[in-house]
Amino acid sequence: MKQFRIIIGAALLLVIGSTAASAQSGQLKLDLNYNYSLPLGSFKSDLINQGSGRGFSGSLQYGINNKWAAGLGVGFQDYYQKYPRAVYQLDKTQSVSAVLTNSIQVTPIMAKGTFMPMGGKGAVQPYISVGAGASLVDFKQYLGEFTSNSKTSASFVAQGGVGVNIPFGRLSASGIKIGADYNYVPYKNFGYNNLSSVNFHAGVFFPLR
């Protein structure tokens, strides 16, 4: 999983490094964002009740016209929660007192589309986006220092997002991107049924040659 993230990161850096953000009207745009994620529903109540500031997302999208773009979106988010010591009933006669820790890493890979109603004009350009694909989920649950549940699996993910692009200048095709995404992840393992979240993100966008 770590190697996978390094590969994604290195690939994005290589792409950035090989292409000057020359503010030309390029049709292929890359964005890279820092993510803060808030778990929702039973993900929050059963697994992780704190927000996670350990995440990033990015997308590479082709401008179909000046209002619509489509492409590929990827991301990564690390969730961690340590619950105070408690006694858990393992079966009818067996109990365990333990500090329970949940450690979950989610890596979505999606087909993504973006609609910009102002057609890429203006100092602040709102957008809405949708995406769907698969999310690689690395789930580990610990009792004390012992792994009690562990599984790496893929789950469906659907995403809807809103935000704004703020170009560096009136003619610039690069700028800052700020927004939020809702991620629907119907995860079904170990009696849990969702890893859905709202992710707030801030980053940069720029055209590729």
Binding site: L12, D78, Y142, E145
Partner: peptide
């Protein structure tokens, strides 16, 4: 601008790509 974007990208990756180790936090 390229340098600034590279710095921003590196910052985003360094902030976002870390992972909390469950066992070492006990």
């Amino acid at each position: 601008k390229t340098g600034a974007l590279l710095a921003a990208a590196a910052l985003i990756l360094s902030l976002g790509a870390c992972q909390k180790d469950a066992v070492s936090n006990l």
